[in-house]
Design a binder for these strands. Structure first.
Length: 921
RNA sequence: GGGCGAAUAGCUCAGCUGGUUAGAGCGCCUGCCUUACACGCAGGAUGUCGGGGGUUCGAGUCCCUCUUCGCCCACCA
């Protein structure tokens, strides 16, 4: 066939079509009825995608994340599981709202100009028109998602789940409204959870400010602060109760400069005597610690800053903010206040100071602690089962070290602020009745009037944190809160969750909590945390830094398979993937080369086998298999074993992970390398090459070679398919016995299995092929040593260890072909100069090189080898002579060492004899 | 400040409960257009396994210590 196949593979020519045929054939669709949880015959295997933001476009991080999931899902699908990969997107509250607000800003407007309803409508239509682009892009890299189940966190179905979750938690007493200091983003004008306010070390200034005693202005207490503007909200100065420096002033009043209010000096153990001056200004409304302290001491909590970060007199702050400071941004006000303090001599000193500052994870603005009313989820009760689940092996986290991080975090978990002062998101299902009072009415359905008094009600203005919908993702996408939903029963709990460690707390741990709380079980048994895509300087790839690589560019230039191969082959467990944005060829060339290699193996096979059907391996007369056949079938079995060991087990056999299972599997890099190594280094380099003379000779043996060739190549394509699905599918469909249109797909073909054990005779014959390989390598090396072109034929003589001729015809033919040599028997050993190589079994390969032999060189080579062997042998024998070793080492180790010693001894004698004969002495 | 981890070939990493002569990919050097493939083939070089100590018959592997990196969390103003 196919001379019509070009020597290089053109991915662009086939990818789109192959993908379309997969979808058309329903390859990616999972049937709930097939799940054995619903009486079907297949084990379900489910992955839910970490939903990308609905406005996202594909970047390398998605490429990595999605490829990992696809490899796993395709592996399980081929292994016979009812494999489901649920795709979808996240409405991404703050992120999406920010996109629209930027649009409005470009138009010279803001969200207030539009009003809430119009803003939400605009966002919704923007999402409808442009959202979900990334889902299209996932198809371009071959993701085998079940598109019939595409979900969206803000869809009516999932929104129902969100509301149900809120109500149930509220009924359980786990949701409450709290008046406390939270993180406030001045730019997004919303509160943030602790996780959304990211720490960063910064150098600021620590100001030491003198607060005079109210009744004794020549005495004062000096406080230290990094945020002097907050002093307007001070209500006390706190010192440690045992701090003798201040014991005299505790209970006295100070006169707060600028604001000119009297504030007391109080004692509290919270204060660290060592830090600063040992006296802390207390601003309950603008600092979380001060807030706690304010509660303990029943202090007032004046708010001196507006939501946008300008100075203003809020609750309880009347008269505190001087008119000339009102309306100023806090940082400008800070400078003014410092200036004024300095003028009055109230600034004792200022010094540079390293401290942690929190930033909004969405816009990087420095967040302000701010006193406000928010909704919170009580996390301790939710965290307990989530903690137990990981501790008892119901859930494992890979790589293992993240488990300690997870546990550490959950043990110290704090309540979750879930209300956001945004417009884009799930509105909090709480209403207030103006007539009955403040009691919130929590409802599953929208209400128009008060159920008590029939009066008008007003819905809470806030929306829920985006993660309040994401944490339901594994259950909501499968139909929850309808607990009888078919998908939920068929596919929950899911299996593996694949994501980056950055969202372990945001998302993963909360999903585990939600799974236990709402469904009574963990949402998955394995969390696979992969690394980050970085450039060659180890800087995280990002669009804004300009060091990104567009996966679609890579697909266009190198093909989707090359992209997938590159990220998987470069991905150690938990390690980062380094790619070079400045040199795509270096990064993706190897992947493309591998695809080309496969392509050419396919070309060879197809042109030598043709379209004619070949017998199945099992139908062959096993006695007709050659040593090469046995060898490659053996190597295939070994490769399958290794691939399976790298990938599995797919789930814990007993429901929870046993110690033996806990840390194994999902070694995608090792799996890929093993499949590649087998295909390239064994199948292509040795077996395929060895079949050439047999195929051209024709006859029965050519038929055997064809059958084995097809069998092994088929198996290799199966193993490689999860990583490089497009090219393997294309080649597989062209193999003999797969008529076009028969609806056969590699994507649904069975995962290869090793032959039944017991082929012991085959094993012996296979190991004889290893000697062929050694002989070939020996001849090639001699040729390279003497500068003889590989293509130039030489004579070669094989001599067994006992001096007898090795006369096996198959062996001689193979070596002759693979090493380009005329292989002769020992009786024909020429008397002239020759190059020698001693093989591991003590047998020899001799290449007569009359006239060109360099005896010096040859002797040097042999002597070096001999010396090396003797050193090693001596060390080995010393170990064996050692008492402790023989008595304490495990028997099999001792046995192996003894066998080795015998083998090396024989080889040493062989070599030594060679040296004597050739070099004298 | 609390918790966790890493240091093995030029680069990225394997090396499981201590036991063959420490491996792979990429890169590098030499030679080859050998009728599937130069996106290829053949051959080759490269590591006192971060330093020091200890346990052991035996340590890259276990323990201690030092050095250097990294990650997560955190309310010393």
């Amino acid at each position: 066939m196919p001379s019509e196949l070009s020597p290089t593979f053109d991915p662009a020519a086939i990818e789109r079509d192959v993908y379309a045929r997969w979808v058309e054939a329903g390859i990616f669709h999972a049937e709930a009825d097939s799940s054995n949880r619903l009486g079907g015959s297949r084990t379900p295997f489910t992955i839910v995608i970490p939903p990308p933001n609905v406005t996202a476009v594909l970047h390398m991080g998605h490429g990595l994340n999605s490829t990992v999931q696809d490899v796993i899902v395709r592996w399980r699908r081929m292994s016979g599981d009812e494999a489901l990969w649920v795709p979808g997107t996240d409405h991404a509250g703050i992120a999406t709202q920010n996109v629209i607000e930027r649009q409005l800003a470009d138009e010279g407007r803001n969200r207030a100009d539009l009003g809430r309803a119009a803003f939400v409508e605009r966002t919704r239509s923007f999402v409808n028109e442009t959202g979900g682009v990334i889902l299209e892009q996932l198809r371009a890299i071959g993701c085998s998602c079940d598109w019939t189940r595409t979900a969206y966190t803000f869809s009516p179905e999932l929104s129902r789940g969100v509301r149900e979750a809120f109500v149930r938690l509220h009924e359980a007493g786990l949701i409450y409204r709290g008046h406390r200091v939270i993180h406030w983003c001045l730019r997004c004008l919303t509160s943030l959870s602790d996780e959304e306010a990211e720490h960063a070390e910064e150098t600021g200034t620590l100001y030491h400010i003198r607060y005079p005693l109210a009744d004794q202005s020549d005495r004062s207490v000096v406080v230290a602060t990094t945020r002097p503007e907050t002093m307007l909200g001070d209500v006390a100065v706190a010192v440690h109760p045992d701090d003798e420096r201040y014991s005299a002033v505790v209970g006295h009043d100070l006169l707060l400069p600028i604001a000119n209010v009297r504030i007391p000096v109080i004692a509290d153990e919270y204060v660290d005597r060592e830090f600063g001056t040992g006296a802390v200004k207390i601003t309950p409304a603008h600092d979380p610690n001060d807030f706690e302290l304010g509660l303990r001491h029943a202090l007032p909590m004046p708010v001196i800053m507006a939501p946008d970060g300008t100075m203003s007199e809020g609750d309880d702050a009347s008269g505190r903010v001087p008119p000339e400071l009102r309306g100023l941004d806090r940082l400008i006000a800070r400078q003014r206040i410092v200036d004024r303090l300095r003028e009055r001599g109230a600034l004792a000193r200022s010094e540079s100071h390293q401290h942690g500052v929190r930033h909004c994870y969405r816009c990087d603005t420095v967040v302000e602690p701010r006193l406000s009313d928010q909704w919170f989820v009580r996390m301790k009760p939710l965290a307990e089962p989530a903690l137990a689940g990981v501790r008892n092996g119901r859930v494992r986290i890979l790589p293992e070290r993240w488990e300690a991080v997870y546990i550490n975090w959950l043990e110290g978990i704090r309540d979750w602020n879930i209300s956001r002062q945004l417009w884009w998101g799930h509105r909090i299902p709480v209403w207030y009745c103006g007539a009955c009072g403040d009691a919130p009415i929590v409802s599953r359905t929208d209400i128009a009037e008060c159920p008590e008094c029939g009066g008008p009600v007003r819905q809470d203005d806030d929306v829920l944190d985006t993660w309040f919908s994401s944490w339901l993702w594994p259950i909501s996408t499968l139909g929850w809160p309808d607990e009888a939903a078919t998908d939920l029963r068929a596919f929950y709990p899911t299996d593996v969750l694949v994501t980056a460690p950055e969202i372990l707390f945001f998302w993963v741990s909360r999903m585990i909590m939600a799974g236990y709380f709402f469904m009574g079980d963990a949402p998955f048994h394995t969390v696979y945390l992969h690394g980050t895509v970085r450039d060659m300087e180890h800087v995280k790839m990002s669009k804004s830094l300009g060091n990104g690589i567009d996966p679609l560019d890579v697909v266009a230039l190198y093909g989707a398979d090359a992209l997938r191969y590159t990220v998987i082959a470069g991905l150690g467990m938990g390690t980062d993937v380094m790619l070079d944005p400045g040199n795509l060829e270096q990064s993706f060339g190897p992947g493309r080369n591998f695809a080309t290699k496969l392509w050419n193996m396919g070309r060879f096979l197809l042109s030598n086998v043709g379209d004619a059907e070949v017998p199945l391996l099992a139908d062959l007369d096993q006695a007709k298999l050659t040593r090469a056949d046995e060898w490659i079938l053996n190597r295939l079995d070994s490769a399958i074993h290794r691939c399976d060991a790298a990938l599995g087990p797919s789930h814990p056999a007993a429901g929870t992970w046993s110690d033996a299972e806990l840390r194994v599997g999902l070694r995608l890099m090792e799996f890929t390398e093993e499949a590649r190594r087998f295909t390239w280094d064994e199948l292509a380099a040795w077996y395929l090459e060895s079949t050439k003379p047999r195929l051209s000779a024709g006859g029965d043996d050519a038929g055997v070679a064809r059958a084995v060739l097809v069998h092994v190549f088929d198996a290799a394509l199966r193993m490689l398919h999860p990583v490089v699905p497009f090219i393997t599918e294309t080649l597989w469909q062209r193999l003999p016995g797969r008529p076009p249109g028969a609806g056969m797909f590699l994507a649904r073909a069975a995962w290869p299995r090793p032959r039944a054990t017991g082929a012991a005779s085959g094993h012996a014959r296979a190991s004889e092929f290893e000697l062929v390989r050694e002989s070939v390598s020996a001849v090639r090396q001699i040729k390279a040593d003497y500068g003889i072109p590989l293509g130039k034929s030489v004579d070669a003589v094989l001599v067994a260890r006992d001096g007898a001729a090795r006369t096996l015809e198959e062996e001689r033919a193979l070596i002759g072909h693979l090493a380009r040599a005329q292989v002769r028997t020992a009786t024909e050993v020429p008397s002239g100069a020759a190059a020698h190589a001693v093989l591991t079994d003590g047998s020899e390969v001799i290449v007569p090189l009359a006239g060109t032999i360099d005896v010096e060189k040859e002797c040097h080579k042999l002597r070096t080898e001999l010396a090396q062997l003797e050193t090693q042998l001596a060390a080995l024998r010393q170990r064996l002579d050692n008492h402790g070793f023989v008595s304490r080492a495990p028997a099999h180790v001792v046995e192996a060492e003894r066998a080795k010693s015998t083998e090396w001894g024989a080889r040493r004698d062989q070599l030594a004899g060679k040296v004597r004969a050739l070099c004298g002495s």
